[in-house]
Amino acid sequence: MSNLNQFAGQARELLRRDTTWPFLVPRQRSPDVSKQVILYLEGLNVSFDGFKALNDLNLYVNDGELRCLIGANGAGKTTLMDVITGKTRCDSGSAWFGQNIDLLAHDEAEIAQLGIGRKFQKPTVFEAHTVFHNLELSLQGSKGVWSALTASLTSIESDRIDEVLKIIGLQNARFQLAGALSHGQKQWLEIGMLLAAQPRLLLIDEPVAGMTAEEAERTAELLTSLAGKHTVIVVEHDMEFVRSIARTVTVLHQGSVLAEGTMDQVQNNPDVIEVYLGEEA
């Protein structure tokens, strides 16, 4: 009898009118940002062999915001990006993209197609291809094998590539092999590749590592110009750089959020001074 009740309960759950069966939910849709928040991370825990890389981390990012994440080595910045992009599974917690997309239910390729672009710490571009083809491969659209075989560049797509080339300032390097670009140019190209896919959320890991002061300045301009149209999360060690672009800064420490606010607020926060900035002073 109890078995029957259980079964009936399950059936009722399955037939609830206010839910949709998981397999009927379209895999690709745009995030619902009616509450102004595009990324909800709650209670994230990740541990590697007992080391807690993320420890009950909570973070909310507004739509169109430019957010900087800072923190010492091992604070969990890269792990956080890994969790958001589906590379690392978290032990517990939830990650939602808008109000309607559960990021933990998708894999890397799907998350990329949902509109989350990620730049790696070390600039990673397709070195054997030209700058143009690098961007072509990054364009939004079907990423299936068959559609790649039959794909031809439409004028809309080629306009998009021109537009991105202009944003990243590589118009003159269009037919250069990406492998022949300088370090800074590769960083820009990778950001351009993310832009070509027209993402909602950009995760950018150490954009100015190894750049000259002049290049860093241009990168700062680029990133601030992106905010508004896209939501940008930047991880960076270079405090000077963070100060130049940041509106809101989140400080991570040992896998959880230590402080959040403007750069000045954060720098005057006694906890932050003790664990992070204090070490430098």
């Binding site: 990329a112 397709f126 291809h129 790649a148 075989l149």
Partner: peptide, 27 residues
């Protein structure tokens, strides 16, 4: 074709291709 370029991309930087939304294993 573009397929060929994706394949070379997978050879040179598979993680990058995957984070651009390509299911590299299918390719």
């Amino acid at each position: 074709s573009r397929l060929g370029r994706v394949i070379v991309a997978v050879r040179d930087a598979e993680a990058r291709a995957r984070f651009l939304g390509y299911r590299t294993e299918r390719y």
